[in-house]
Measured scan of single mutants.
Amino acid sequence: MEVRTIKVFTTVDNINLHTQVVDMSMTYGQQFGPTYLDGADVTKIKPHNSHEGKTFYVLPNDDTLRVEAFEYYHTTDPSFLGRYMSALNHTKKWKYPQVNGLTSIKWADNNCYLATALLTLQQIELKFNPPALQDAYYRARAGEAANFCALILAYCNKTVGELGDVRETMSYLFQHANLDSCKRVLNVVCKTCGQQQTTLKGVEAVMYMGTLSYEQFKKGVQIPCTCGKQATKYLVQQESPFVMMSAPPAQYELKHGTFTCASEYTGNYQCGHYKHITSKETLYCIDGALLTKSSEYKGPITDVFYKENSYTTTIK
Rank of each mutant, 00 (worst) to 15 (best):
K7A: 15
T192Q: 14
A247S: 10
L114W: 02
E308R: 01
D23Y: 10
S171A: 15
T5Q: 10
Q197L: 09
R4Q: 10
Y306G: 01
R184A: 09
G82A: 15
T10V: 13
A145V: 00
T91Q: 07
H276N: 06
G228L: 05
Q20H: 13
I223G: 15
V3K: 14
G143M: 03
K255V: 12
H256Q: 11
E308A: 06
C149V: 13
Q222N: 09
T116C: 15
S50L: 15
C285H: 06
T75W: 01
V67D: 14
M85I: 11
R141T: 12
L65K: 08
C193K: 15
M245K: 01
H176L: 13
P47N: 02
Y306P: 04
Q222D: 12
V12E: 08
I223C: 15
Y155T: 01
K307G: 09
P241V: 01
T278S: 14
H176F: 11
P248V: 09
A40L: 13
G164V: 10
Y28A: 07
T64K: 12
G220R: 03
V185I: 12
A117F: 01
C149G: 02
Y172W: 09
K293N: 08
N49C: 15
N178G: 01
V243I: 10
Y311S: 07
G202V: 02
Y113R: 06
L186I: 15
K127R: 12
Q270F: 10
V22P: 10
L173A: 05
S171L: 11
D303W: 04
A177S: 09
L153T: 01
K106V: 11
Y113F: 13
Y57P: 07
V58T: 11
S246M: 01
T260M: 15
C182H: 04
I286S: 01
D165L: 01
A142Y: 13
V166A: 06
Y73E: 02
S79R: 11
G228R: 06
S263L: 00
Y234G: 04
F305P: 01
Y306F: 06
E52Q: 12
R141G: 10
V58H: 06
V99L: 15
A205D: 02
T313A: 13
D62Y: 09
D62H: 09
I301R: 03
V166M: 10
G220D: 04
R139Y: 09
R139I: 09
T35Y: 05
G143D: 05
Y73F: 10
A108H: 00
L65A: 12
K280E: 04
P34H: 11
K127H: 10
Y297T: 02
T314V: 11
H256W: 09
T75C: 12
A262V: 04
N110G: 09
A136L: 04
S240Y: 00
N49G: 13
R83T: 02
C149P: 04
G272R: 04
N157L: 01
